[in-house]
Design a protein around this nucleic acid. Structure first.
Length: 495
RNA sequence: GGCGGCAUAGCCAAGUGGUAAGGCAAGGGUCUGCAAAACCCUCAUACCCCGGUUCGAAUCCGGGUGCUGCCUCCA
């Protein structure tokens, strides 16, 4: 496949360090607050990359960290009167739950800073020994000017940054551009023993230590949000290559675009966030995931509820199609009288080709939509040729897996939860139409009773009554459909 | 101040030299008690503006305008 490499600014063929294997590292979150939709976007995108690589046959080793020690965590924990690691631990647990809802597969390894102190100390020791760092009054600093390639990833020169003059002034630094590898602890702060005194790692060093630990030097893909390009990833390169001079740290750098709230970037520090939790109350995780995949991963995504509503319609279509094609396979024994035998092959080829071109999800989704239309048309028209429809089902399900949209079961569960959230309304309607339910009945039972009532009206020819009931349900976001094989209903998150 | 990115129909969005994918919404049709779903049809002489290069540009170049990212914690 081809991917866009931030370092060379080119879209290039992905050539692994070891044939058939991909080693990838993605910067995870600093868990001091609930994950927002921007965090979700990054997680979903790299999860898609991983799934695609597995799909085309690679053995993938995927590492993603938690930066569970940093200034903000310490501050917040202090404010709440709890231990920093308790705070970060709580949000890590929350994050794991949220990502599971979005069908993000757990990475193979999820290292934490607090559990990687030894590796970090070893790495700093190496950097010091190689002369790229110095011990100062309040910690250990990296000498940016000693690293010749500094600024290559983010495309800036050391002198330009000087004119920016927004780098903080710190007496302990030899140069304002230098950054901390190890911070000596202030009284009462969480700390670990080190050759330079009790303290904790600076930001940046942990990702070098953890990625090198689990993947080794020169691993394949390093990813993260594009806001990490500078200084985080720039510094990672500097540290890692200073520790192991002459060896390339990472083969390809990938960066995912930001989610914007209105015109501005969504960020915890700006406070303009939409959390995943909040969204999951209104929409199934699969719908949110599809929403995030509708835009190319490198472009900014302007968050909108309307966009999620569109994703809802689309996901509904996919879920319905999956059921449809499964039933078709059952009823036809796998072969049907249809049309174009090539439909499957063309779909698989186009879908894979789209993702192979720097994860073009819009194009891949277009292939999925067209495929659904083609298969249904084939069945509708019923040509003379015999077509293997089980291959269509397999191709479709395989594509859904790659996109991580294969949790149709979870989708149905989430929809039922939305029905349950309307239990009061349903009870009201049941009372109005005289459906036989009691106050204790579950929402789905109440809904069933209403539907039974309506079917009774229909078979009695009382269409005005039936239509009224349908309208009432539509009013609370439940749409009834009378098919030849019974009644179905759809639930809509938007109202 | 320095270095980037983006601008395609009501909305989302692909497309980096060959004459505008796909989806949502909308309108019409088939089907249906009526709807919905499904299927069929319609829906940008046109890609922010002005120049230029070219047989040919949404795509390349120059100049504008607007929005935005990074330079400080950040996915």
């Amino acid at each position: 496949m081809r991917i866009h490499d931030t370092l060379t600014r080119r879209t290039v063929e992905l050539v692994p360090r070891d044939p058939g294997k991909i080693a990838m590292y993605v910067c995870g979150v600093t868990p001091y607050a609930s994950a927002h939709i921007g965090h979700a976007r990054t997680a979903v995108i790299y999860d898609l990359l991983r799934r695609y690589l597995v799909h085309v046959g690679y053995a993938v080793m995927y590492v993603s960290n938690y930066t569970d020690i940093d200034d903000k965590i310490i501050q917040r924990a202090q404010a709440q009167g709890i231990a920093p690691l308790d705070l970060s631990n709580r949000y890590i647990e929350e994050y794991v739950e949220d990502m599971a809802e979005l069908n993000v597969l757990p990475p193979d390894v999820t290292p934490r800073v607090s559990e990687s102190i030894e590796d970090i100390i070893d790495l700093i020791t190496r950097i010091l020994a190689n002369g790229y760092a110095y011990v100062s009054s309040d910690g250990v600093y990296f000498s940016v000017r000693k690293f010749g390639h500094y600024g290559r990833l983010s495309g800036r020169s050391i002198d330009e940054m000087r004119s920016g003059a927004r780098v903080d002034v710190n007496e302990a630094k030899d140069d304002p551009l230098d950054f901390a590898l190890w911070k000596l602890a202030k009284p009462g702060e969480i700390s670990w023993e080190s050759p330079w005194g009790k303290g904790r790692p600076g930001w940046h060093i942990e990702c070098s230590a953890m990625s090198l630990r689990y993947l080794g030097g020169g691993f394949d893909i390093h990813g993260g949000g594009e806001d990490l390009i500078f200084p985080h990833h720039e510094n990672e390169i500097a540290q890692s290559e200073a520790a192991f001079p002459g060896r390339q740290f990472v083969r390809y750098w990938m960066h995912s675009g930001m989610v914007n709230m209105g015109a501005e970037k969504m960020s915890k520090s700006l406070g303009n966030v939409m959390t995943v939790r909040e969204l999951l109350k209104q929409y199934p995780g699969q719908v949110i995931r599809l929403y995030l995949l509708q835009t190319s991963y490198e472009k900014p995504l302007k968050f909108s509820l309307d966009g999620i509503g569109q994703a809802f319609s689309n996901y509904e279509r996919m879920a319905e199609f999956e059921t449809f094609v499964q039933e078709l396979v059952k009823s036809s024994g796998g072969l049907i009288q249809g049309g174009d035998q090539d439909i499957c092959d063309r779909f698989v080829r186009e879908f894979d080709a789209a993702l192979a071109e720097n994860l073009n999800t819009s194009r891949a989704l277009a292939a999925v939509y067209e495929f659904m239309t083609h298969v249904r048309r084939m069945v509708t028209e019923g040509h003379a040729a015999t077509v293997d429809v089980s291959c269509a089902m397999k191709a479709f399900q395989s594509a859904l897996w790659v996109l991580g949209l294969d949790e149709t079961g979870a989708y149905m569960r989430d929809k039922m939860a939305l029905v349950a959230s309307r239990c009061n309304d349903l009870q009201t309607i049941a009372a109005e139409v005289g459906a036989a339910v009691d106050d204790q009945s579950a929402a789905s039972d109440v809904l069933d009773a209403i539907i039974v009532k309506r079917q009774g009206a229909r078979s009695a020819g009382q269409y005005d009554v039936a239509d009224q009931i349908r309208e009432r349900l539509r009013g609370i976001g439940i749409a009834l459909e009378d098919g030849v094989d019974g009644v179905r209903y759809r639930i809509h998150g938007k109202q």
